[in-house]
Simulated scan of single mutants.
Amino acid sequence: MSSDHLLDPSWLARLERMQVASRRAASGSQAGKRRARQLGSSMEFADYRAYVPGDDLRQLDWNAYARSGKLFLKKYLDETELHVSLYLDCSRSMSYGQPSKMSLAAKIAAALGYLSLCHLDHVSVYAFDRQIVGSLRGLQGKGQSLRLLPFLAGLQPGGAGDFEQAVRSPGAVQGRPGISIVLSDFLFDGGYERAVSYLQAARQDVTLVQILSREELAPDYQGELRLIDSETAQAKEVSVTGALLADYQNSVQEYQRQLASFAYGRGISYVAVQPEQPLETILFSVLRQAGVIR
């Protein structure tokens, strides 16, 4: 996947005005508190970004305007900061679908990472199957998107997934409180509960984004089939009937309900999306309504 295809350039201004929501910040906790958006809380210059309608005119850099004829806002470091960690499931099951679940995960991560970098948050990205197979850590500033996007575009599906084993890998979790967003189908033989508990114990504000294709949710199969597990390569002969498909769909829906209920019980966010949905809808409607971004 080309990094040019991860983000639509026409969305960049909209993304720059959004930010990842933190329940810790909203509750007034000192841990994970957001960097202030007003100018002057700290006079250490950090970055520029282009002006978009609605921005505070007091933050404009008129010297830059005099030089270039373009409007820019200066951004300054504050004493508070947010650490955003993005976990991308790169197990083999994520290659399923057209477009694939993994391609959607990379695009969502690109958007969330970009808008976080624009707000000077610290951004770390971890790709995993049964272990961390690639990572970028501690990115800060919009210029770091030049590292983030090629990294995400180059990810490839690997082997069987084990979420708990992956997050317990050395260096897989930030040492400071922050936000951890997991992009996965959550089809792990070992489950997801202990991994989420581990992240929360590390003082992470967790969001689960489950990606399942429409064919996985409502397959249109019939007759005698040989089904092969994409991760274990185990095969099973199946006679597909209407009753079997109904049972399957009920099982998938029940699994999603259990995952949502688990998240609710732990005080974390859960969002279900599909690769067939327009990315613009997912970003500016689904994730926003779920309170993942604002």
Rank of each mutant, 00 (worst) to 15 (best):
A243D: 10
A246K: 06
Q222H: 10
V206N: 07
R92Y: 03
Y126S: 08
Q30G: 15
C118P: 02
R67T: 10
S285C: 09
M102L: 15
V84M: 00
R34T: 04
E254N: 07
E231Y: 04
I108V: 15
R257D: 09
E164A: 06
G161D: 05
I211C: 01
K75N: 02
G223W: 00
F284M: 12
L225E: 02
L152Q: 02
E231G: 05
A64P: 12
I132F: 00
Q144D: 14
D61R: 07
Q165I: 14
Q274Y: 13
G158Y: 04
E216M: 15
S135G: 04
D61S: 14
L60V: 13
G138W: 13
L283T: 03
S22V: 08
L187T: 01
F72D: 11
Y114E: 03
A260Q: 14
R37E: 15
E237V: 00
M43A: 12
Y126F: 15
Q274L: 04
A272F: 03
Q204H: 10
S169V: 09
G69I: 06
A111G: 05
R176L: 06
R67M: 11
C118E: 11
E44M: 13
V252L: 13
S116G: 06
T241P: 09
G291S: 09
V196R: 02
L115W: 04
V52W: 10
K70S: 07
L104A: 02
S68G: 10
L77R: 15
Q277M: 10
F151G: 14
D205F: 05
S3G: 08
S285E: 14
E193T: 15
R203V: 04
P157D: 13
R24F: 13
R23A: 11
L183H: 01
V52G: 11
A195H: 06
V292H: 11
E164R: 07
D89W: 04
E16Q: 11
Q19R: 12
F262T: 10
S103G: 01
L183Q: 03
H122M: 11
G143F: 04
A50K: 14
A233D: 13
S169E: 12
G175E: 14
Q144T: 15
D205W: 02
H83G: 00
G113C: 03
G69C: 03
H83D: 04
S91Y: 00
R23F: 05
I132D: 09
Q258I: 03
S180H: 08
Q258Y: 00
R24G: 07
I211H: 01
G161V: 05
Y198D: 08
F163I: 08
L139D: 12
D55C: 05
L120G: 10
L139T: 13
I179F: 01
